[in-house]
Write a protein that binds this DNA or RNA. Structure first.
Lengths: 250, 250
DNA sequence: ATTGACTCTGACGTTACGTTAGGCATTAAG
DNA sequence: CTTAATGCCTAACGTAACGTCAGAGTCAAT
């Protein structure tokens, strides 16, 4: 188990040192070891991560999305890969059409393509993703980061996100129905998972911020209604659990 | 023959107004008509250009290269398209390999690809183009622009560029051999074409700058040798013609 | 102890636009 | 004919994923 200097890594993977600096800066690949001198040293695990990062990058996935992807569970990763495969498929199809277009153009020696042939290009806009999260909590920094991040989410990203959220809510419902305490170990654990869900998908959310959010869950009708419709008393239960998660941390 | 407002064009082609502004700014597509109000109006011809621009763009060609491409003669354009087709082919091949990779990975359910399988990605560096033009004329603005531009030239761009240059030199040789005058109409016309060649491929070169260059053609051994090897007396002949092209302009 | 290779942190440059911001122009409605 | 409501203008900063210095500290070898 050797560690590699940044220059070695760069040569091994045929990338620039600057790229590694960049990945460090955006938190995509933070080398495990940092010497006192400031020198970065990469472990074998780091190299494995880098390998995957470069694969995803080669597939045209943005670094932002790669970050989310790598944070995901392996099974979810497979789902994402499956979708990515579909995207690559489509990309190939488009290119093939362009290829045909080029062949025709060349064989006819006619540089000007007719208007109807142009239709191939028209539907070329990169997928527009729905801007769902109509964050009702004002114009804070968190909101800015959130909307910046969520911009790049695809439809299936959202599906995964909502799936996770629903699962967590489901866990809470179970606990509530089983008569568990909102301040008990289990509830607090789920509360923590909820916080991490926010960190992963939206913005850096400290336990304290999360507690503030919890306040809103009981204060704001829209949230309360959503929770109560799942199970009466859930809003208060979740809110309690979250606030206690804060206490545990401190 | 109607003219279209910028908004109409944007809707027609499914692009943003900003994009059109941008293409105007970089001189890629300058609308023929500009109202006194400053409003842009696009003619049918403009739309044709735009159509081609978008096609090239869809092929992944940079705006810089598109600019050069469109400035080219139709036959040269066909050559470029042919090469472009090859590039798209390669791109498709690469994607197919990635596709296979993904399939394997998915079927094995193994997220970690082995090191030897990784080789697919390694040769992934975007083509490195030779930095040929070792411009010996110092560190001027022109040099900066030149090296900035030539960076994005592909091997075949360089071929075309040199082909054109050789052709122009050939024309000069013919004139010289035919006993034409270096200050005659024909020589001066070729001189002007030489200047435009520089404008197209390297940097904005005014007749005055060109004349300065001409000075160098006779002063600098390397240039002189190159010209003289084509035909004795050619260096002085070309130099004369260029300087007289300046006189004609003023 | 000094040289040369390696690395560090800024910080600005690049491409192809997106995104306001502030201000005229044009057109439709009253 | 005035007032909105659009449409368009320029200017200028923001974005992604790095490239490219510049100035300075670090490491290994001589």
């Amino acid at each position: 188990m050797k560690e590699y200097s940044i220059g070695e890594v760069a040569k091994l993977f045929q990338i620039s040192i600057r790229t590694l600096h960049h990945y460090d800066a955006i938190g995509l690949l933070i080398p495990t070891i940092r010497a006192e001198s400031g020198y970065r040293f990469y472990t074998e695990q780091n190299l494995d991560s880098l390998k995957n990062i470069l694969i995803y990058r080669a597939l045209g996935i943005s670094l932002q999305r790669i970050k989310v992807l790598l944070a995901q569970q392996p099974e979810t990763q497979i789902d994402m890969l499956r979708e990515q495969k579909r995207l690559v498929d489509e990309h190939i199809e488009r290119l093939k059409k362009i290829q045909q277009q080029l062949e025709q153009t060349l064989s006819k020696g006619d540089l000007m393509m007719k208007k109807n042939e142009f239709s191939i290009i028209e539907g070329f806009d990169p997928d527009k993703y729905e801007q769902e999260v109509v964050a009702s909590w004002g114009d804070t920094d968190a909101y800015k980061e959130s909307s910046r991040r969520t911009k790049s989410y695809s439809k299936s990203d959202w599906q995964r996100c909502h799936q996770q959220r629903d699962d967590l809510n489901g866990e809470m419902v179970q606990l509530l129905r089983n008569g568990e305490s909102a301040v008990g170990e289990q509830a607090i654990n789920v509360a923590e998972k909820m916080r991490q869900h926010i960190c992963t998908w939206y913005y850096q959310c400290s336990p304290a911020m999360h507690a503030q959010l919890a306040e809103m869950y009981v204060a704001d009708d829209r949230f309360t209604d959503a929770y109560e419709s799942l199970n009466p008393g859930l809003a208060a239960f979740v809110s309690q659990a979250i606030k206690n998660n804060l206490n545990r941390v401190n």
